[in-house]
């Protein structure tokens, strides 16, 4: 389970998170929605220790991330896959090497690495792309390779940062399907950050709405769909009531 307990974070004068609390239940997909620039990606970076909170705690499997020593943090990262907004593939490495890098780090023998790379690329429907470089792939393919890199590690958790942003509807549907399959077939707990409402309702078990550094509403997809919160309704329906200003 991932849990945020009263997490605050500021960058200079700008308060991004202001006492945020959220629980990401085991085995489910939780979507963190919110307007652009409200700190959704900042939340994800706290889970893997890329950022440290100014106040509060982030817990993963009951371990306080910001209090872990180096070795424990490395072990924690080994249990978490991270899919970046723009895939963040290593552009000097081939697709196969991108996937193999983390696997070799975990001490897998070369045969097992090759098998896991092939299996992961098959899962994201990109078989035979091992020798291609990221620059030779489309945006959608890069995202799928990013997901393959995350699932190749057989993580317990996967964090998705805007997985469908900038993609066409067909590719968006394919990425949504991949996230659903990752939860169903691999049993991973997922935290998805997005402002793509359609995608959120397609993949989520639970949805949390982040506004002004805190969770304004959280609940099941049915509860969020039936909300009477005007700001959340505006966000979901795209109606311009001016509430967000």
């Amino acid at each position: 389970m991932i849990e945020f307990r009263g997490v605050s974070k500021r960058f200079g004068e700008k308060v991004v998170l202001d006492g945020l609390s959220l629980v990401v239940p085991e085995g489910q997909t939780t979507v963190l929605m919110g307007y652009s620039g409200t700190g959704k990606s900042v939340c994800l970076k706290h889970v893997v220790g890329l950022l440290e909170p100014d106040a509060g705690q982030v817990l993963v499997d009951d371990e306080v991330v910001n209090e872990l020593d180096y070795e424990a943090l490395m072990q924690l990262r080994g249990r978490i896959g991270y899919v970046f907004q723009f895939a963040a593939l290593f552009d000097s490495l081939t697709v196969g090497e991108n996937l193999a890098l983390g696997l070799r780090r975990r001490g897998l023998d070369p045969g097992a690495v090759t098998a896991r790379v092939t299996e992961s690329l098959d899962l994201v429907e990109l078989p035979g792309t091992e020798s291609r470089y990221p620059a030779e792939l489309s945006g959608g393919m890069r995202k799928r390779v990013g997901i393959a890199r995350a699932i190749a590690l057989k993580p317990r958790y996967i964090l998705y940062d805007e997985p469908t942003t900038g993609l066409d509807p067909v590719t968006t549907a394919a990425i949504n399907d991949l996230m659903i399959r990752a939860r169903r077939e691999l049993g991973v707990t997922s935290l998805v950050v997005t402002h793509d409402v359609r995608s959120a309702f397609a993949v989520a078990d639970r949805i949390a709405f982040l506004h002004e550094g805190r969770i304004r509403r959280a609940g099941t997809t049915a509860e969020i769909r039936a909300t009477d919160d005007p700001l959340l309704r505006e966000f979901i329906e795209g109606a311009l009531t001016g509430e967000a200003v």
Partner: peptide, 16 residues
Amino acid sequence: TMRVTEQVDALETLAI
């Protein structure tokens, strides 16, 4: 370039 395209963050998330 690796820093601003999050490749350095990606390395860290792979425990490298």
